[in-house]
Amino acid sequence: MARFYYIFLICFLASRAFAVEPYEILNDAKLEDRARNLSSNIRCLVCQNENIDSSESEFAKDLRLFIREQLVEGRTDDEIEEFLVSKYGTYILFKPVFAGYNIFLYLFGPFIFIFSFIVILIVFFKSKKGNEACDQQKK
């Protein structure tokens, strides 16, 4: 843990905030936009919860350059992400792929919402019926 902490210190503190260097930026604005978009989903593996866009580590820099190279060569965003996952594992993506056990992560919230919503409605109609029955009894 201590070693990790030092790597983090070096990466996170010593050199934050000069992430993307001017020479890295592509001339084609559309490709650069795509590169930015991709980078925001890719984790700097030697840093603390940072994407490669805002990290200054050598690792992040290499990946930024790699992504831009691939984009210039005409690869799609998905191809590049797939390649990175095959090389570094799923840990590198900030947005877990919608597959396997991650489906649970994505659908749990909506499921709870819909499920509880139905429960509330059931209770609502039940209470209505109960109240109506009550009212009739009173009459």
């Binding site: 925001s40 989903n41 919860n49 799923t90 900030f94 947005k95 877990p96 991650n102 992560l105 994505y106």
Partner: peptide
């Protein structure tokens, strides 16, 4: 599963925005 995944900003943006 002894695997490593990350959950970061893009995930929260996608899944929280509707709610």
């Amino acid at each position: 599963f002894d695997e490593q995944v990350s959950v970061g900003e893009p995930f929260y943006e996608v899944s929280l925005t509707p709610f």
